[in-house]
Structure formats: C-alpha cells, structure tokens
Simulated scan of single mutants.
Amino acid sequence: MKKKIFVDGLSGTTGLGINERLSKYDNIELIKIDYDKRRDINERKKCLNEADLVFLCLPDEAAREAVSLVTNPSTKIIDASTAHRTISGWTYGLPELSPSHKEEIKNSKRVSNPGCHATAFVLSLYPLIKNNIMPADYPVSCQSITGYSGGGKNLIEKYEDKNKDNPYTKAPRPYSLGLNHKHLKEMMVHTGLVNSPIFLPIVANYYKGLATIIPIHTSLLNKKLKGKELYNVLAHHYKNQKFVKVMPYIDEESLGDYKYIFDGGLDITACNDTNLAEIFVIGNDEKNISMIITRLDNLGKGASGAAIQNMNLMLGYEEDLNL
C-alpha cells in the first residue's frame, strides 16, 4: 500500500525541493491541497490527518500551529522549521551522529530537520566533544559561508535583481551581527557545548553551497592531539556513513598535491546537487593549530535532502533511496 505524504508549505525552497525529490517515488501518494485553500485551517487539518507522514516547510509559529492540528496518532511529522529542534519529545534528524540517533529517528513520530549551518557545525564538533577531546567550554568560533538560496524566496529575489546598483551583489555580506543567529541553540544542544560559539555567517553572490570553518588551538584541547590525530577521530566516527565523508588529511606538505584543492582554495559548491557532507581536517602542528571545514549543499543535506533521508528511515525504506 502506498504511503500518503503531505507537504505543508510547498511554495518555499525547502518545500519545492522536497516535492521534487518525492516525484522519484512510486510507492507514495502525495496529498494535494488547492492553492486557494492552502491557508484554510480546516482543509489543512484534513490533509495533515490523512497523511502517514507530513513535511512542515513553514515559519516557526505556523509549524507549531500545524502540529497542534494533528490529532491522528499515526501521523508522523518532519518539521523543517527551527521550532522543534531543541524541544523535548522531538528527535533531532541528523542520523550520522551515532547509531542511537539513527534508531531514534527510525522509531520517532516527531523529527526536527536540522538547520543548514547547524548540520555542518554539529557534524564537525560532535565527535570531539562526545569523546572528551574538546572540552564542553572550549571557546569555539565559526565562520560559515553560504549561497543566497539559504535565505529563501525573498533573499533570492534581492540577489537576482538585475539592477546594476544592486547592493546585495557587490561583495560577500556578513550577517546576524547581533551574534544571536537562530541556529545557535541548536548548535550548542546537539554538540554539548556549554557556551555559545562566536558564529559569523556570510552570504555571498552565488546560489547554493555552504561551508563552516572552525579553527582549533590544539593546545587548549583536553587531549593534545596533532592534526592527523584529530582527523583520525572524525574519520573513525563517520567511517560507515553513506552521506558524511571525511576527506583525506591536509597539512602544509600535502597541500600542493591535494586533488581537492582548487587553485589554492577549497570549492564549497562541490557537494551541490547531492546529499553529501564532506569534512576536511587541516593541520599545522608546528603552530599547534588545526581547522575543520565542512561543506554541503544548503538545499540538499542542509534542507530537503536531509528531510527525505529522515523520511526514508521513518517509513522503513533504505536510507539512501532516491538520494
């Protein structure tokens, strides 16, 4: 029997991405709502409760409202908003963190889809804090650069405005300068950090692709590991994962011959149109510093791809089906 799926909030970038990916399935039935009834609460409630699984691609308050409308105890929900990522009773949808994370997703009826920046950040640091290599009070700083699609339809329109004096296209733009980005709580809760990281996201004039950049003073770690040893921790932790890859170690000696380096730098769009997250560890042991760079498609593993991966697990499909 086909599973019934409803996407609430189909017009945004994440909703559209999920809908496109769902078109590859022949074992599901999409519940559709008339465009002029998409804000009709009774019509939405009907669709929500008919579904075996619902994707919520809505602003936070609207997502909370949608959850309150679900009275069918069998309906499973994947919420792509920020609303439930740190709420008790909801499972965090990043299965690569541990076998228990994956099992919880498989058995959950309420899964919160991670944020794009948070996905890369949490993947980078979770193994280090979990293994007591990085102290929970380590003074973490992180820059994250992303394409403008991460800002949704409104920001896309601003960047794609063809006005020659368009200020959005002149240079990369640091934002969230109040140091209170909406992903921060999620980053702390799901890594185990006790202090807020200094997090500076930057949006640039390209459509999609994201990378978090986290510098590490290895002398401040609980275990004074060299760069290659840090790499080994991450490589071991993610060794059996289909969608998280720890790339070969980089140091000053290997930099010139490293095939993933593009003209002296790293291409942060290389995971676009995939559900991959790729982690790079770069070390300079002479200076006791290392760096972790994690890249992904902010619309893929950072949004709709992750949602489909979670759906596959929740419905008992192969995790990588149609991904």
Rank of each mutant, 00 (worst) to 15 (best):
I293D: 01
A66G: 08
K164C: 09
V111L: 15
L69T: 00
I18N: 09
Y148A: 08
T71W: 00
K32W: 14
L10E: 11
I214D: 03
L30C: 12
Y175D: 10
C271M: 08
T212V: 12
R295D: 06
W90T: 05
T274C: 07
T269N: 03
S196D: 03
G302Q: 00
I129W: 01
Q309V: 03
L125S: 07
R85M: 14
G265S: 09
L123C: 04
Y207I: 00
E319A: 06
E103S: 06
T294R: 08
Y249L: 07
L193C: 11
S254A: 13
A66Y: 08
K170T: 15
N166D: 14
N195I: 10
I133G: 01
K76T: 09
N222L: 15
I33S: 14
A63D: 05
A270Y: 00
D34N: 14
L234A: 10
K162Q: 14
L296C: 10
T294W: 05
F121D: 10
Y258P: 05
V194I: 12
G192R: 06
L155G: 12
Y260N: 03
M1S: 15
P197E: 09
V244A: 11
S88K: 12
C116R: 07
K153P: 03
M291H: 06
N288K: 08
A171C: 14
L56W: 09
H237G: 01
F55E: 00
D52M: 10
I105T: 09
S23P: 02
G256I: 09
P167Y: 05
K223L: 05
N272F: 03
P59W: 02
F199I: 13
G209F: 00
R173C: 13
Y159N: 03
D161L: 09
P172A: 15
K162G: 10
L179D: 15
I268P: 00
I216G: 04
